[in-house]
C-alpha cells in the first residue's frame, strides 16, 4: 500500500506549477475573455514544448507515454490557475479516446497532438455541449451508439455562453459526410471511459481551484483589518476556512485513488471516479461559498479574482456528470446484486 507519488511525479508537478503560476495570471485570463477565441496559440505552443500536450501520448507516437496517474497532479495545477486552454481535456480525454480508437486515426493525430500542432476534442451526449470545438482540428463526437470523427469543415457550431467566461461551449451539428469510426459495444466502452476520464479531470481541477480560493482567502483575511485586528483572527472566520480544509484534504485521496484505478484499468474505476468527482466538487463548492463569505462584499465583485475560480468550480461540478448522476452511479453499485463492499473490497 502506497498512496504517495514518486519523486519524478512530484518534480514534474513542481516545474509545471512554477510555469503555470508565472504565465497564467488572473490578468491574462481576464484578457482572454476579451479575445475572440479566448485561446492563445503562443501559450499552447509553450505547453507543448514542456511536453504537456503529449504527456499521455504513447512514446511510439512522439509522446511521453504517461498515465492518468502521472497527469492527475498536473490537472490540479491547471485548476489552481484556472487554465483556460484545453490541456486537461487533451491529456485526459482526447488522447485516451484516440488511443482507444486506435488504427489509422490514432496514428495520424496523436503525433500532431503531442507536437502541439493539432487539438482534438471529445463531445459526449452526457455533456450536451462540446468544449473548445471552435479551436479543434478534429472532433470525436458521440451520436447514439456510434463515435464519429469530424474535421471542422464537416461541422457547424453554435456558441453557447457559459457562466465561466473562460469556458467556450458549442452545440455541434454534423454534416452527413462524417462517417462513424467506431460503433456498437466498442463505441460504448470508449464513451464510458471518456466520461470517466473527463470526470477525473474535473475532480482534479476542482482540488486545485479549491486550494487557490483557500490560499487567496487566507492571505486576504490576514490583511483585512476590522475592529483593529486582522479578520482572520476571529474564530468565526477561521472556522469557515478550517471547514474547507477538512473537506479538501479528504477529497484528495479519492481523486488520487480514482487516477490510479483509471491508470491501471481497474474494474471499479467508474465507482472510484464518481466518488472522486463528488468529493472534490463538493470541496470546491464549499470553498467558493466560504471564501466569498470571508472576503465580505469584496468577494462579490467582478474586480476581485475570486469569481474566476468560483465560476470554474461551478461549471466543472455540472459537467462530465453532475452530482446527481455520480451519486446515482455510486448508489447503483452499492445496491447491485452480490455487491462486495467489505473487507477485501477497499480497492
Amino acid at each position: 500500500m502506497d498512496f504517495t507519488f514518486t519523486e519524478d511525479q512530484l518534480l514534474f508537478q513542481e516545474s509545471v506549477r512554477d510555469f503555470l503560476r508565472n504565465e497564467v495570471t488572473p490578468e491574462r485570463i481576464r484578457a482572454s475573455w476579451e479575445s475572440d477565441s479566448g485561446r492563445e496559440d503562443a501559450l499552447w505552443a509553450q505547453l507543448a514544448e514542456l511536453g504537456l500536450t503529449g504527456m499521455t501520448v504513447p512514446e511510439s507516437s512522439g509522446g511521453l507515454g504517461m498515465s492518468a496517474l502521472d497527469f492527475v497532479l498536473l490537472a490540479q495545477e491547471c485548476g489552481y490557475v484556472a487554465l483556460p486552454e484545453p490541456l486537461v481535456h487533451t491529456a485526459l480525454v482526447a488522447v485516451p479516446a484516440l488511443c482507444d480508437i486506435g488504427g489509422e486515426l490514432a496514428e495520424q493525430w496523436l503525433p500532431r497532438v503531442a507536437a502541439g500542432e493539432a487539438k482534438v476534442v471529445v463531445g459526449l451526449e452526457q455533456n450536451m455541449l462540446v468544449e473548445d470545438a471552435h479551436v479543434a482540428d478534429l472532433l470525436l463526437l458521440q451520436r447514439g451508439a456510434a463515435l464519429l470523427a469530424a474535421t471542422p469543415d464537416q461541422v457547424s457550431l453554435r456558441h453557447n455562453e457559459s457562466v465561466d467566461p473562460s469556458r467556450k461551449l458549442y452545440a455541434v451539428d454534423i454534416d452527413a459526410a462524417a462517417a462513424p469510426v467506431v460503433e456498437g459495444e466498442q463505441a460504448q466502452r470508449i464513451v464510458a471511459r471518456a466520461l470517466d476520464h473527463g470526470a477525473l479531470g474535473s475532480a482534479a481541477q476542482a482540488l486545485g481551484l479549491a486550494q487557490r480560493m483557500v490560499d487567496m482567502s487566507v492571505q486576504y483575511t490576514a490583511e483585512r483589518q476590522q475592529f483593529g485586528v486582522p479578520i482572520g483572527s476571529f474564530q468565526a472566520v477561521k472556522h469557515h476556512m478550517a471547514n474547507i480544509a477538512v473537506r479538501l484534504e479528504y477529497a484528495r485521496a479519492p481523486v488520487h485513488r480514482a487516477a490510479y484505478a483509471i491508470a491501471h484499468e481497474r474494474a471499479n474505476a467508474a465507482l472510484a471516479v464518481s466518488h472522486a468527482k463528488l468529493a472534490a466538487c463538493e470541496a470546491a463548492n464549499l470553498a467558493a461559498k466560504n471564501c466569498i463569505q470571508v472576503h465580505g462584499a469584496m468577494g462579490y465583485t467582478w474586480e476581485v479574482d475570486l469569481h474566476i475560480f468560483m465560476k470554474k468550480a461551478w461549471a466543472l461540478a455540472n459537467t462530465w456528470g453532475d452530482a446527481g448522476y455520480h451519486k446515482a452511479r455510486v448508489g447503483e453499485r452499492i445496491f447491485a446484486d452480490g455487491a462486495v463492499l467489505g473487507a477485501g473490497a477497499t480497492f
Binding site: 455533456n127 455562453e161 457559459s162 457562466v163 461551449l169 461551478w314 461549471a315 455540472n318 459537467t319 453532475d322
Partner: peptide, 8 residues
C-alpha cells in the same frame, strides 16, 4: 442540472 452552466 447540467444546464445551469449555460447562459441564455
Amino acid at each position: 442540472g447540467p444546464e445551469c452552466e449555460i447562459l441564455p
